[in-house]
């Protein structure tokens, strides 16, 4: 039942690699921007949104790293699937918490500006 690893088609490897590299680069960029902006005395609530977003990206990146092995294993079962999917679950949840926080902050700011 355990699938033996086999060379995966190049296209599958490239696409899995592209998704991983995309998330990795987004994570690195977000981390650098957040740290640089934090030094420039970023407001606390804005910094929190960035923090949650970066944390979410980290989990998403870990999930995609694990998913890199799926084509060569020709499956995602057991602990491999459990790890991949739950890391993605946590990452996506954090990313959307950050998005919602940001939206609420902006919305409150808008209401404050209205006469």
């Amino acid at each position: 039942m355990i699938p033996t690893p086999a060379p995966a088609p190049l296209l599958n490897v490239i696409l899995h690699g592209a998704v991983f590299l995309f998330v990795l680069s987004t994570f690195v960029i977000a981390l650098i921007v957040w740290i640089r902006r934090k030094r420039e005395t970023m407001p606390a609530e804005e910094s929190e949104s960035w923090e949650i977003f970066v944390l979410g990206l980290f989990f998403y990146m870990v999930s995609e790293f694990s998913d890199l092995f799926t084509p060569s294993l020709r499956a995602s079962l057991g602990m491999h699937n459990y790890f991949t999917e739950f890391a993605l679950l946590v990452g996506l949840a954090f990313i959307f918490i950050a998005m919602r926080r940001r939206l609420l902050i902006v919305s409150e700011a808008e209401q404050g500006e209205q006469p």
Binding site: V33, E45, E46, S49, I95, A98, M99, R102, V106, A109
Partner: peptide, 11 residues
């Protein structure tokens, strides 16, 4: 989300 986070300060 990046575009929203890169927006200017909330105020």
């Amino acid at each position: 989300i990046f575009r929203s986070l890169f927006a200017s300060k909330p105020s």
